[in-house]
């Protein structure tokens, strides 16, 4: 992990660079001239009201969608052409839904982290070691043979983090990972993410809870179709970017603070 960390720190270029990106679904504009850089080792918290284009921006960053205008580069390559899938750990918004009903063990899910490296053929000793280490690191080794659907919400989230760790990813992208997880587990979960970030893993987190973002993230981006703020969490709290972004749609603000 230490060698990986220094490697990450040595590369001065941003890990992700979004340059003047505009995107829409058909005629509906979702993002307008958004530019943002993510430095290696940083922890970006992406906030904004519902439908503000957060998940879309994440998709664009990971190369899962292509912008209508502007460019996105990922690890120095055009994002849509980037093909080293093992460097990306992605926990989608609805990822845990399927996990609830499907008969699949913790270990089987964590093994998927090795699939980009070994889609066919037998796992090597290194593959198996990475899987064990990942289980260990998030503290679910003793749950390895359990069915994922029979775990608590907090434990289930750790399984997905372990999957990203097993692939030895450089980038962890989380889209509202703690929906439906109890408060205590949420605290623990974000403690874990904080620790992983401290070891050099770059994190992008989409989160409703502004408090979580300002506590753990090193950078905050506030989005509502346009980028209202991008910078230090402490500065963010002092500016009125949040009320500007949410102010466009006042009833969403009220709904969120109920």
């Amino acid at each position: 992990m230490t060698t990986a960390t220094t490697e990450r720190q040595q590369s001065g270029d941003p890990l992700i660079s979004v340059d003047d990106v505009t995107f829409g679904y058909g005629e509906v504009p979702v993002l307008e001239s958004v530019s943002i850089d993510i430095e290696p080792g940083s922890f970006l918290g992406l906030v904004g009201p519902n439908g503000s284009g957060k998940s879309t921006l994440l998709d664009l960053m990971l190369g899962l969608r292509r912008p209508d205008e502007g460019t996105v580069s990922l690890f120095g390559e055009p994002a849509h052409k980037f093909d080293a899938g093992e460097r990306i750990g992605y926990v989608a918004q609805d990822a845990t839904k399927a996990a609830r009903d499907m008969p699949i063990t913790v270990r089987e899910v964590v093994e998927m982290g090795r699939y980009p490296r070994r889609l066919f053929g037998r796992f090597s000793a290194a593959d198996r070691q990475a899987i064990e280490d990942a289980l260990e690191q998030v503290g679910i080794t003793d749950l390895a043979s359990r069915r994922v659907g029979r775990l608590s919400g907090g434990q289930r989230q750790r399984v997905f983090i372990a999957r990203a760790l097993a692939s030895e990813a450089d980038l962890l992208a989380l889209d509202e990972p703690t929906v439906g997880v109890d408060a205590e587990s949420r605290e623990e979960f974000y403690g874990l993410i904080h620790d992983l970030n401290a070891t050099g893993l770059t994190v992008i987190l989409i989160e409703h809870d502004i408090g979580v973002v300002t506590t753990h993230a090193t950078d905050v981006a506030c989005l509502n179709r346009q980028l209202f703020f991008d910078g230090d969490p402490e500065e963010f709290v002092e500016t009125d970017a949040l009320s500007q972004a949410y102010g466009k749609d006042q009833h969403i603000l009220q709904h969120d603070h109920k």
């Binding site: 699939y115 980009p116 889609l119």
Partner: peptide, 22 residues
């Protein structure tokens, strides 16, 4: 048998599979 891993990944979590460049 040959495509077991990609089929399982796509069945379980198609979005993550796409992010992992399957």
């Amino acid at each position: 048998t040959l495509a077991y891993r990609p089929l399982l990944y796509v069945t379980f979590d198609a979005t993550a599979a796409r992010a992992a460049r399957l």
